[in-house]
Design a protein around this nucleic acid. Sequence first.
DNA 1: GTGGTCTAGACCACT
DNA 2: GTGGTCTAGACCACG
Lengths: 121, 121, 121, 121
Amino acid sequence: MSIQFDPNKAIYAQIVDSFYQQICSSELMPGEKLPSVRETAQMLKVNPNTVSRAYQEMDRDKVTFSKRGQGTFVTEDHTIIRALKEALAKKQLTELVHYMRNLGYTDETMIEALTKTIREV
Amino acid sequence: MSIQFDPNKAIYAQIVDSFYQQICSSELMPGEKLPSVRETAQMLKVNPNTVSRAYQEMDRDKVTFSKRGQGTFVTEDHTIIRALKEALAKKQLTELVHYMRNLGYTDETMIEALTKTIREV
Amino acid sequence: MSIQFDPNKAIYAQIVDSFYQQICSSELMPGEKLPSVRETAQMLKVNPNTVSRAYQEMDRDKVTFSKRGQGTFVTEDHTIIRALKEALAKKQLTELVHYMRNLGYTDETMIEALTKTIREV
Amino acid sequence: MSIQFDPNKAIYAQIVDSFYQQICSSELMPGEKLPSVRETAQMLKVNPNTVSRAYQEMDRDKVTFSKRGQGTFVTEDHTIIRALKEALAKKQLTELVHYMRNLGYTDETMIEALTKTIREV
DNA sequence: GTGGTCTAGACCACT
DNA sequence: GTGGTCTAGACCACG
C-alpha cells in the first residue's frame, strides 16, 4: 500500500479512506488483521499517532475493532461492510451527478451515457 | 479561479483541465476571451511559460484559438465543445464504472444506484 | 470548573463527561460558547491537545459544534440534549440497579427504597 | 481484592467501604474471618497501621469484631448487616436522586426511568 | 509485541 | 485570536 497524500485533506482521513477501499474491495477480508499502527506508520512514512487516529476513527465507525495487545481487525459484521460500500458508492455517485449536471447532462442523458460506458469498458 | 495543484500531475495539464471545466459548464462562453497568459500566471502564481504551454495545448485541441496581439478565445464551434463535454464525461464515467465494479456492483445495480442518486440529489 | 482526575479514565473522556453534565444541568445553555481549547487547557492544567480531543469527541456526538476561528458552541438542537440527558441518566440508573441487586434488593424493594429516598431528600 | 485509591478520600475509609461492599454482597459471610491486618496491608500495598485503623472503624460500627490473637470476623448479627446494606443503599440512592434532579427529572419521571431500567437490565 | 493516552511544540486556515 | 492537524517522544496496560 502507498498513498499519494493530498495536502488539503487530513492525512488520517486519507488513511481511513484507503483502508475503507481495501475493505470494500475485499483486499482486506472480514476478521483480517490490519498491519499494526507502527507498521503502517513506517510504510506510509507518517507519525504513528496519525495512524492511531485513523484506526480509532475506523473503530468508532465499527468498521474495525481493536484488541489491546493483539491488533486491529476488520469487523466480521457484513451488515456494516455493506453499509460502508453503499456509503462510498453514494459519495462517488453524488459527485458524478453534480459534475454531469454541471456539464449540461439531463437525468436521461446521464443514465444513457453511463449505460454506454458500461458496455464499452 | 484557483487551483489546488496535485503534485503528481503536470501543472500545465491541470490548468488545461480547469479551463476545460469552465468552458464545459459555460462559465466561459464560446467566443469569450480567456485571461492573458500573464494574468493567469499571476493569478495561479505560476511561471508564464507554464500557462503558455497550457494555452498551446488547448489551441492544439481546437478548444481555443489565439489571435496574435489580441489574446486567446474559446472556440465558437459548438461541435468541438460538445465533443469536449463528452470526453470529460466519459473520463468521469469510466472512473466511476471501475470504482463501482471494484466495490462489487454489477452493471444493473450500478445503474439502479445512479438512478436512485439522481432522484435524491 | 475544576476536575479531580481519576487516573484510570482517560482525561479527555473525563473532560467530555464534565461538559456533558454542565450542558445537561443547563449550566451551559444551547448555543453558548465553551471556553476556548487553550483556556480550558490552562484551567485544567492539561495539554491543549487533550482538550482538543475532548472537544472533537463532543463535536462528533453533535452535542457541540465548532466554527473555525470562532470557537466551540453547545448545540441548539434540543433533541440531542434530551437524548444526552437520557443517556447519562440511563448509565447512572444501570449502575444503581446492579449495585442494589448486589446488595440483595429485589425490583420491588429497590423502587420502594427510591420512593422513600425521594420523599426524604 | 484490589482498590483503586481515590486521592481525595482517606485510604482507611476506602478500605472500610471495600469490606462493607464485600460483606453486603455476601462475598464475606457472617462469621467469616477477614484477612489479617498484615495480609491486607501487603495485598493493598499500604501501611499496616492504615489497615488497622480501617479494622477499628468496622469494629466500632459493630460490623466486625476482633478476637485477640485470632483475627477479625464479620458480625453474625444479621440486623447489623441489614442496617449496613440499607445505609449503603441510601447513600447511592441519595446521590442518584440529586444527579437525576440536576438533569431535570421529577420524582415521577425518575421512578418511571428506574422501573424501565429494571425491566431492561 | 499490541493499541491507548498524554505532553510538548509546531504550523495551518479561518475571522 | 479560533480550532485542526501533525510530529516527536514518552509511558501505560494488556497478552
